[in-house]
Design a protein around this nucleic acid. Structure first.
Length: 243
DNA sequence: AGTCATGTTGACGA
DNA sequence: CTCGTCAACATGAC
């Protein structure tokens, strides 16, 4: 479920409930269910991996972490974290992090950081990169304040696309290359969205979980890289290391 | 059947 | 105070 494009799909599935009143709010989430009951869902938004259910004076923030899931107009035999019933259907969330954000949603998020947002800004992203020169590119791509919505799959695929080694230091990557990384983080995210909708995301992976390089045929490296120690798949021949 | 993973937070100690 | 490390959460794919 987790990466940004998947949250966009979730958001799209839930727009049918906009302007509808919550008839019943249930589940074991540690939030005030009574406060939600009777309120009208005013909008459904997303910021990176956050799914945002907006009401007049507050927003329910859903984060699926690694194992979270949701069902629209369906139910499965699992503990419901949050269940919202409307007159035209219902949503169930499972194993997700649920939090209430007070007041205007704009006060909580920098929309220009979200790679899926129409307010996304390449120039602001590059500015943030210039403030993180001592970091490795594999860490920076996973930094949600810089590339909100990018997850480990997108990280690996983007680095392969632009031929950059995950252990490259931001300071040593040429500006033109940094721009390419930034633009591809967004481009790949939209490809991810398209492929996921066609149920052929995995089929499109060029490095993630792969054994051999799809470009040169040599065997790929699998390492847990950077401060974040997330697994990276890369080709030492095709992906240049900037240090 | 056991291992691992599209993720994040908070506790703890150095 | 800041940094790094680790546990915790919880589910499905292989």
């Amino acid at each position: 479920m987790p990466e940004g494009p998947s949250i966009v799909i979730a958001k799209e599935e839930m727009t049918v409930f906009i302007c509808k009143k919550v008839v019943e709010a249930t589940g074991n989430a540690k939030i005030d269910m009574e406060r939600i009951k009777g309120k009208v869902l005013t909008d459904v938004k997303s910021w990176g991996k956050h799914l945002l259910l907006c009401f007049d004076e507050f927003t329910i923030r859903i984060h699926f972490l690694l194992f979270g899931s949701y069902l629209v107009n369906e139910t499965k035999s699992a503990v419901i974290r949050l269940g919202l019933a409307f007159n035209n259907g219902h949503i169930n969330f499972y194993a997700a992090s649920v939090k209430i954000l007070e007041g205007s949603i704009d006060s909580h998020y920098d929309w220009s950081a979200d790679v899926m947002s129409d307010q996304w800004s390449a120039s602001k992203t590059i500015k943030k990169l210039s403030m993180n020169k001592e970091e490795l590119v594999c860490d920076v791509l996973l930094d949600q304040d810089i590339f909100s919505g990018v997850g480990n799959i997108i990280k690996n695929e983007v680095l392969f696309r632009v031929s950059v080694h995950p252990n490259s230091l931001i300071d040593k990557i040429p500006p033109k290359k940094l721009k390419e990384i930034t633009e591809q983080a967004r481009n790949y995210s939209f490809d991810f969205l398209k492929w996921k909708k066609q149920y052929q995301l995995k089929k499109q992976w060029l490095v993630h979980t792969k054994k051999e390089c799809t470009q040169c045929g040599k065997s790929l490296n699998k390492e847990y890289t950077g401060k974040k120690k997330r697994r990276s798949f890369f080709c030492t021949t095709c992906q240049k290391l900037y240090v």
